[in-house]
Amino acid sequence: MSTTDTTASGIGPVEGASLYSVDNPAPVIEPPRQRTKKTPKSTRGNFELAAWLFMRLSGVVLVVLVIGHLLIQLVLDGGVSKIGFAFVAGRWASPFWQVWDLLMLWLAMLHGTNGLRTVINDYAERPNTRLWLKGLLYTATVFTILLGTLVIFTFDPNIR
């Protein structure tokens, strides 16, 4: 530290009374998560490749599934007014619609989760923030997928 009389007032640099000097420079602002010689650690896996491919393929399949779903539910044959317990029960009596909805649930959930994982990787800077956001995301995903799958397979039209 220098021995000169530096005032730590908030007025800012006045001539001869700057907070910083050649021997005492201000800290530089480093960008988040800088690359060093030791990082990133190599993982040697194909996960990112698979995730990237999955996004494209599931996206294409989802276009068909979701637009078909919306057409049936909201447009064709009376539109949204026809939807009720009986309508859902009638559809899920057929294995075709069970598979359709199951596929839509899994693909949409994994597609969305992977998208959010990407967003977290891109924008969360601190390791702890990343860990917690991803933990929350994966918990919510597993819960929704399991609950949805359970409902599709154990749906009982005679429930009361």
């Binding site: 990133p40 190599s42 993982t43 040697r44 896996g45 990112e48 995730a51 891109d122």
Partner: peptide, 14 residues
Amino acid sequence: LEILNDKDGVWRCR
């Protein structure tokens, strides 16, 4: 290619 296949490689390109 293996180096760029990793988690901070080409797949992070938006």
